[in-house]
């Protein structure tokens, strides 16, 4: 399976936001999208998730137009609802998709252990720590069984210790489940640590200004942070981002 984003353009009124964004993602790939604040990263995800209709360009799956069911979208906020238990929050997507509640719960329950949430099925979201809430939100996305996960700054609101632990955890479970992931992040180190490729968007109106391949063996652990290849990739990306205005 291959996802192709071809020349996507979006303007809000007179304000051009995306100006011919093109890239592709293969099955099992982890691709990060970096870019200056307000460059249109979230708009790009909106297009992929079917929330924003592009003015030009297309999103294709193996050459055919992608439907809304291709992408599982995890927004920046966890959006866990206080009126649902943690388990029922994670089944939301399945229920909206028309699955029976019992079947949906069975499917979601299987993921609670690998997501480190076992024992919290009946808790309320307010009882979870910040990292657990993000994992519950990711579980809600993953259980929908979409082909590509769209993660919009999933760890942005976490403290740095929790964030590091979450990055290691994501690296580990992704390897285990073989997800295809597109990640928006501001954190260059996070992008390099997790990705096979990193796309750098230009400032608005955005296009893909640069693509950096991260050739580091998997599974990666914290030790990789000091690997010369890691440091080189990080430096290259920072350089590109800093030169953002000249792109």
């Amino acid at each position: 399976m291959k996802i192709t984003v071809a020349g996507v353009e979006v303007a809000f009124g007179d304000l051009p936001v995306l100006d011919g964004v093109s890239f592709d993602v293969a099955t099992g790939e982890f691709v990060s999208v970096l870019g200056p604040s307000g460059c249109g990263k979230s708009t790009l995800f909106g297009v992929l998730a079917g929330l924003v209709a592009p003015d030009h360009g297309r999103v294709l799956v193996d050459g055919a137009p992608a439907g809304r069911e291709t992408f599982g979208y995890m927004p920046q906020k966890d959006l866990l609802f206080p009126w649902r238990t943690v388990l029922d929050n994670t089944t939301l997507g399945l229920e909206v998709g028309g699955m029976r509640r019992r079947e949906a719960r069975e499917r979601a329950r299987e993921l609670f252990a690998p997501f480190g949430l076992a024992g919290f099925e009946r808790s309320r979201p307010a009882e979870l720590s910040g990292g657990m809430r993000q994992r519950a939100a990711l579980l809600r996305t993953v259980v929908q069984d979409r082909e590509v996960l769209l993660l919009d700054e999933p760890f942005g609101a976490l403290d740095s210790l929790t964030r590091t632990a979450m990055q290691e955890w994501l690296e580990e479970v992704r390897g285990r489940f073989g997800w295809t992931v597109l990640l928006i992040t501001h954190d260059v180190r996070e992008a390099v640590f997790l990705s096979d490729r990193v796309l750098v968007l230009s400032s608005r109106p955005a296009h893909v200004a640069r693509e950096v391949r991260i050739d580091l063996p998997r599974p990666r652990e914290v030790g990789v942070l000091t690997d010369p290849a890691f440091v080189a990739a990080e430096a290259e990306l920072l350089d590109t981002l800093r030169g953002g205005t000249r792109l």
Binding site: P82, G116, A126, E127, L128, G130, G131, A157, L161
Partner: peptide
């Protein structure tokens, strides 16, 4: 009230042990 509780290292499977249910 939707703010997360005090930040703590998340319980990662196969790593440090968990300390039961977080109090509401």
């Amino acid at each position: 009230r939707t703010e997360p509780g005090p930040p703590s290292s998340p319980p990662v499977p196969g790593r440090a042990g968990r300390t039961g249910r977080a109090p509401a």
